[in-house]
Design a protein around this nucleic acid. Structure first.
Lengths: 121, 121
DNA sequence: CTCAACGCTTGCAATTTGCAAGTCTTGAAC
DNA sequence: GTTCAAGACTTGCAAATTGCAAGCGTTGAG
């Protein structure tokens, strides 16, 4: 679906641009949100309210894996499980900051429970 | 170029999705970065290293204005100046978090000076 | 053994992005 | 007082990305 991830060009050496070159599209950060929320299976991501389509979901999971933010493991039976690596975990603060902005500035957003996406300690 | 901003549909009531519906594309956050960095003119954004094209830049500035993150003012002569509103300013923390992730996890990103994009006090 | 659910892939349409060129104002230089 | 260049865009069309619907190969339960 999208071209070889390893040939992708960076737009600049700016750290913000570099980050967006990896996660700056319409869907990737929402998949990461679900992973931070503890979801691990393809069908769980698919069931989120935004209704990502399967081709995009599968492409985004592959990219996240290639970039090392996610690992794909065998679950029970022949099902797969996707888990965050430290590199993906590390986006938690950025995602929480986006959530905070949404609650403050976008109308009719649901206010998540106090511990939503919070680092389990 | 893009269709009427006021008819755009939200994907869900999630605050993260709501935020991304406004700023979650390839370019918007980079324009915001430049605004936080004090740039105000069309040609200044155009000169950033990522080389945004003029049609996209003009579209993104219009969207940011419609959503109230930016105001467009008459500068000297008949030039325009774009300035952040509080709603746009409020994305600073999220953008700094993305920059921090980039510096930590993306190879060859330039490390910005300590006060880069920092809230002037 | 059958059948439904899971985890995808494929093909094609619609939308968005990218590129190049062109337009309309000033404001400065000659 | 006329050129000319810079700034701020718009337009048209090609290329890339996204969205939709359907299809396919494994399980695992009944």
């Amino acid at each position: 679906m999208s071209r070889d991830v390893s040939t992708e060009k960076r737009r600049s050496e700016c750290p913000i641009a570099g980050t967006l070159d990896i996660v700056g599209d319409k869907w990737t950060l929402l998949v990461l949100r679900d992973l931070l929320d503890g979801k691990t299976r393809f069908s769980e991501f698919e069931r989120s309210p935004e209704q990502i389509t399967t081709n995009i979901l599968s492409d985004r999971l592959r990219r996240l894996e290639v970039h090392g933010l996610v690992v794909r493991r065998q679950g029970s039976g022949r099902r797969f499980e996707y888990h965050l690596e430290p590199k993906g975990e590390a986006l938690r603060d950025a995602i929480l900051a986006l959530a905070a902005w949404g609650n403050a500035h976008v109308a009719d957003t649901w206010v998540p429970p106090a511990n939503y996406l919070q680092r389990p300690d």
